[in-house]
Amino acid sequence: MTFDTIFVLVGIPLFAHSGLAFFQSFLKGPSQYDDLHDFEISGLPTSVKIQELFKIKLSSGRFCCKDLIAAVLIWSRRLRMIGFLPLMLYVTFIFLLLVKGSFTEDFNVEFLSNILLGVAFLLQVLYILFKLRSNIPQLLMHLPKYEKASFLLILFDVVPLWKR
């Protein structure tokens, strides 16, 4: 049994769970998911708009890499679901693994799926680092269900990613 097979077998129930939880959180309306965004990034309240952030930071002459990441996060939070993005990348990844045999020989599926997995992994780590800075038990308590599932999935992912 290859790693890909194990990944798909374990991944599908996790995806099903996280996908359902995601849509449930959507259908329920405002929930704990919203409260999670009431944290501060880079010392500024999250309600601040991206343009304002840049204005304040640039005028004070204190603009660093952290602010840039904060800006990216604020921008992506406007989409309200950066946590959903890694999940979607995983779904695409699983889809690629499942239908690998149907692709043409010119197209390097392995390479693409590794990139997707890598991006998903990085995004999730970034998201988690910036969301609840470090405390893992607290983090797991606060994360919405679908993110918990996809978080477990990354831990599980690292193995095949590294193995490749």
């Binding site: 979607m88 010119d106 197209f107 390097n108 693409l112 990139i115």
Partner: peptide, 15 residues
């Protein structure tokens, strides 16, 4: 290769 770049762009756009 060009096909992989294109696939990434396409997936990115859909997402």
């Amino acid at each position: 290769d060009a096909l992989t770049i294109n696939a990434l762009v396409a997936i990115g756009i859909c997402l």
